Amino acid sequence: MLTELVIYIHGKGGTAEEAEHYRALFPEAEVLGFDYQSRTPWEAEAEFQAYYDKVAAGHGPVHVIANSIGAFFAMCALSGKKIHQAFFISPIADMEKLILNMMSWAKVTEAELREKKEIATDFGEKLSWEYLNYVRQNPIKWTVPTHVLYGANDHLMPREVIAGFVEKIGGTLTVMEGGEHWFHTEEQMAFLDKWIMEHRE
């Protein structure tokens, strides 16, 4: 019988070493942290597909656990791959909405961004006209059975956006009241572990 594989995909500022946490939850599986370099969805498409093809060969069912923008990149790149189930933690489910919100925070108009191509913000993000155009022209098509964990105090993705996304893909949604975009406290991680154990097949 082929060994199950779990691919862990971190969020912005995260590391592949975070995969260690999930080994206890999938004791029969090989758990790998993906140390990707991509910063855009078009870069992720090539890098994520090549990584999947390399590590999935010879394994049984593949599970994906992905955080934040890691989940967005996974949806951009791995929709055509054979994935048994996915666990998305605080996914960036609507990148266009997030970019438009960041433009609003930075008081940048579409006309300005179109003209300047890139604009740095005082909250550390760089706005990109190319990125905005890409997400508009390449809508997410995700059909993998997916479970979503969302913190009610997530400052990046509104609850109604996540709910709409989950309904669209036919997934399940679990909300942690008091949870944040970044699940990291002892209480949040215990909630996360319970969520995975309840939904893993």
Rank of each mutant, 00 (worst) to 15 (best):
M75V: 05
E115V: 01
D94I: 06
H147E: 03
L32M: 09
T15G: 11
T15I: 01
I99R: 14
K117D: 07
L98I: 15
A190H: 05
D35G: 10
M157N: 15
V175S: 04
A66S: 12
H199N: 15
H184A: 07
F73K: 14
G170E: 04
K116H: 12
K54V: 00
G171L: 04
P41K: 12
A120S: 11
D35Y: 04
C76E: 15
S38H: 08
F26C: 08
F165W: 12
D193Y: 07
Y36V: 01
I196L: 12
V148F: 03
E110G: 08
Q85G: 07
I7H: 14
H199Y: 09
E47G: 05
D35A: 15
E45D: 12
T185M: 02
A29H: 09
A50I: 00
P41R: 13
T185H: 06
T121M: 04
H63R: 10
N67K: 13
H184K: 14
F73D: 11
P145E: 03
K117W: 01
V6F: 08
A46G: 05
I140N: 09
Q49P: 00
G33Y: 07
F88T: 13
N101S: 10
Y8P: 02
I169H: 05
C76V: 02
N67P: 01
F73R: 14
V6K: 11
E167L: 07
Q85T: 07
P41L: 05
